[in-house]
Design a binder for these strands. Sequence first.
DNA 1: CTTGTAATTAGGTGATTGCCTAATTAGGAT
DNA 2: ATCCTAATTAGGCAATCACCTAATTACAAG
Lengths: 101, 101
Amino acid sequence: MNLVFKALAHPVRRSIVAMLRKGPMGSGDIAAAFDMAWPTVTGHLAALKDAGLVDAEKEGTSVRYRLNISAAEEAVSFLMELMGAGAHAAEPKAPPEEKQS
Amino acid sequence: MNLVFKALAHPVRRSIVAMLRKGPMGSGDIAAAFDMAWPTVTGHLAALKDAGLVDAEKEGTSVRYRLNISAAEEAVSFLMELMGAGAHAAEPKAPPEEKQS
DNA sequence: CTTGTAATTAGGTGATTGCCTAATTAGGAT
DNA sequence: ATCCTAATTAGGCAATCACCTAATTACAAG
């Protein structure tokens, strides 16, 4: 979960994730969408892959990245429980689990 | 949203937020819950306040911190839209679920 | 084998983070 | 005023981050 939040704490990486929402993309196409050097984008993709938010698949000479939402589930649960805490002032629910992603 | 994800990208800050889920707490009680110097915790609280996730309210000589979930709503929306993109992503084991009640 | 293209790794730099101790501010009590 | 406690700010240090350019790997085609 740590790596997931960390990965999403950067606008470029959130943007990449949003792009992949519409379907898988090659590394080059992703890099071309940003006004920064390709290796920088590669770094962002590596961060997303580390977090488990994307999977990379080699396809000939290019690499196809696709979204993997399952890594985000823990993060969603965390936030949903937060929201639940707003509805009721004090609710003894499941204890907060601290797991590393 | 940036600051929210950034703030939640640290286990101590997530833990603080989880603690505040049960109700407001004083700075000292929060600091006492961690095995680190008080000023370090103050820094984490400042990060959470910057993100809008907590509000601080002076109460005599102490300071009471309280959860503010509204700052997390954008982050939740972002993640929920991600989950909605499951149809285009790698096929997870579970079928794509819509927003649950 | 040579060349071209796709993508990553290597390496460097300035900014930021996370932690600490020491100093400071703010109130309440003596 | 003086002192004590609560909390923050100041300042320093090692580690990480985000970005760049240059070098390298991987693969496909001529």
